[in-house]
Design a protein around this nucleic acid. Structure first.
Lengths: 218, 218
DNA sequence: ATATCTATCTTAACACTGTTCAGATTGAGC
DNA sequence: GCTCAATCTGAACAGTGTTAAGATAGATAT
């Protein structure tokens, strides 16, 4: 078994607030999360194994349990960060536009773009059985992402809160379904850039169809 | 290990075209498919194991390989039947209605109803990595299900074939996304009948919002 | 400075999994 | 009857997640 490089020597100053390596391994949590992300990015959600994540972090397969309890715990942490990143992407997409419909369309495109750029992470985020589904932070992060739709949609409906909820559910369902179907290759190949561009164009048409510009009829 | 009951005695007539039991086990393919369906129904897609399916069919873990190659092959067969059943449900839902919009709404409700009633099977149908994704029969069955939307939507658009494709993609995406999000508990609990009813009502609102009755504006 | 404490990590084991391969079994056809 | 090919078993292999006991080492107290 390969021994990892010895930890960097401690600074001579003993009162350092945050040592550069910390405990034995130091940032094992972060290392395991990074390793998990790498597996998801390289080989997809189905290929993730706890042992492989431990291997990449240079620790024994039992090490992660002390930080995350079990594989679900580690993946939950990954999913939380994934939701945070998604929510950020949605907010940013909306902030770059003026009209409400433009914001909504930009959010839809950003949602699917995120899914296609991080397919493994995205699939894992919505694989409740592999996560600690009732984790408070996970639920909060997920809600925050869904909330990004409500914020924009509320401007659109201008009606009751219930209408806004319905419209947000509609928007989220549409882009989520499109992303999922795209990832399962129902709209053609998604492995090459050309395929992804075509899929994004299809999405644009779908969004135009469901949320036509003001005054347009169908 | 438990010995299964001895096969029923052959009929005295030797020229029977289809013996009631066939080979050693007889209908092992069907038994394995039924066992797999049972696992999916009882414990969900994540809980499926080939060994458990073999156990339930009363054969050794190596037996399935002779009929399906591997676990993916068996699950592909299950998925094909799932798509066939889904396509049938979609066609039947549309056939019971007159107006095009009523057909579309009935299809949407039927789609999500199917997903909520057979969650394990539904999740497996859209888990490409666990199936033989390029199996011709699987792709055909999947296309047939998607085609059910196109048929109804074509009446709605009355435009070019491209418009119909866009509208069908929109409809499929919406109901698929809603079903997926519902199964991941994003719209509340789905484990009890009351929760499912509430979710179906939310879906009805979503469909009314996205495909309003003729003449209605938003 | 030394001893103790406690978080961290390893080692080894356990019960699983899917798959492969050699051989046994058994229905079908000559 | 005999042969043949399809079917199934048994055993093995490499891999998985998880657990328990012990080693290690940073932090803390004396």
């Amino acid at each position: 078994m390969k021994k990892r490089a010895p930890a960097a020597k401690r600074s001579t100053a003993p009162t350092r607030p945050k040592p550069e390596v910390g405990y034995h391994h130091g940032e094992l949590q972060e290392a395991l999360i990074a390793a998990s992300e790498a597996i998801l990015a390289e080989q997809g959600a189905e290929a993730f194994t706890l042992r492989e994540a431990a291997r990449r972090a240079g620790v024994s397969p039992a090490a992660p349990s002390h930080h995350f309890g079990n594989a679900q715990g580690l993946l939950t942490e990954v999913a939380i960060r994934g939701y945070d990143a998604l929510a950020g992407a949605l907010r940013e997409a909306a902030s770059g536009k003026q009209g409400t419909r433009d914001k909504l369309r930009a959010q839809g495109l950003a949602y699917v773009d995120y899914a296609l750029r991080h397919p493994g992470r995205f699939q894992m985020m919505f694989a409740n059985k592999r996560l600690v589904a009732d984790d408070a932070r996970l639920k909060q992060a997920s809600r925050a992402a869904g909330h990004a739709f409500e914020v924009v949609v509320a401007e659109l409906t201008g009606g009751t809160a219930k209408d806004a909820k319905t419209a947000a559910a509609a928007a989220w369902s549409t882009v989520h379904g499109f992303a999922k179907l795209a990832l399962e290759e129902k709209f053609g190949s998604v492995n090459n850039e050309a395929g992804r561009r075509e899929i994004m164009m299809t999405l644009d048409q779908v969004l135009n169809y469901l949320w036509p510009a003001s005054g347009t009829r169908r």
